[in-house]
């Protein structure tokens, strides 16, 4: 069973293949994403993050989810030499980890409920569990130049994959050390990791590093990456090939 809805400003798709699946399971996943949006949306005046940014909440009043996400942001900043920064213009913007964290949490809920074979795709970042009828899930890496085309096909199971790209909603990632300089060299960086939250936060930070980003991913154990530059060439980590489908 597969369903797509538009939430948090992006298409979210859940495909759940186990026998006995009913629409309620998918509804619960989408409801969860809605609740995350209510809490973390910078566009909602009454969201917790908006209230924090208006100074209406003291740190001790933050929700557990907010603390978790902010702690994850801080950890990511430390792990990436400061390339992951959530304070912009004096406001907190944890969007860089919220999406991956939310997908990961939604997947965790499905697993706890006993579901084994599914994926959750939120705006191109994906958590994959189990298989598609016994075979690993097949994941395409979108061509940033021609969106209807894939440049790689990967076989993945029980892991996460995330892509950071400069063409998404304009230039929404920047180099915190050179905030005025647009990131032109690298168009997209796809990261495979143990789960989508990990893949997403490192993809985001490594993308901000520009051309060095793929070297950062190479240095991380248990992560692989595929980086496409403005010259339509791709650079990939040494362990990446093992996921690639050869036609």
């Amino acid at each position: 069973m597969k369903q797509t809805r538009l939430l948090m400003g992006m298409p979210i798709t859940v495909e759940l293949l186990d026998p006995g699946v009913a629409t309620e399971q998918l509804d619960a996943v989408f409801d969860f994403f809605s609740s995350v949006d209510e809490r973390f949306s910078l566009y909602k005046e009454e969201s917790e993050i908006s209230r924090i940014n208006r100074g209406e909440l003291r740190p001790e009043d933050y929700s557990d989810d907010m603390r978790t996400v902010l702690a994850l942001c801080e950890r990511t900043k430390q792990q990436t030499d400061g390339y992951f920064e959530i304070v912009h213009d004096g406001r907190l913007d944890p969007s860089g980890v919220v999406k991956g964290w939310a997908i990961q949490q939604a997947a965790k809920r499905l697993r706890l409920a006993g579901w084994r074979n599914f994926y959750i795709d939120a705006g191109g970042d994906i958590e994959l569990a189990g298989t598609n009828d016994g075979a690993p899930w097949r994941v395409g890496i979108r061509n940033p130049f021609r969106r209807q085309e894939n440049v790689k096909v990967l076989t993945l199971t029980d892991c996460g994959v995330a892509t950071s790209g400069t063409a998404v909603r304009g230039q929404h990632i920047y180099d915190p050390y050179q905030p005025g300089v647009p990131l032109r060299e690298v168009l997209s960086l796809t990261v495979i990791g143990p789960n989508v939250c990990e893949a997403d936060r490192f993809a985001t930070a490594a993308f901000a590093m520009g051309r060095r980003g793929i070297q950062f991913i190479e240095a991380l154990p248990d992560f692989e990456g595929y980086q496409i530059d403005a010259g339509a060439r791709a650079t990939f980590t040494n362990g990446f090939e093992r996921y690639v489908v050869h036609e």
Binding site: G9, M10, P11, T13, E15, Y119, D121, G123, G124, D125, I126, L128, N132, W137, R138, V139, G140, I141, R142, N143, P144, F145, R146, R147, E149, N150, V151, K152, V153, V161, A162, T163, G165, A167, V168, R169, S188, T190, I228, A232, R233, A234, F236, V245, E247
Partner: peptide, 18 residues
């Protein structure tokens, strides 16, 4: 490598959907 189109069927796509 130079990027190249792959025609193999996929279940899901990673990348910028927006």
């Amino acid at each position: 490598e130079a990027i190249q189109a792959q025609s193999a069927q996929v279940d899901v796509i990673t990348g910028a959907t927006d």
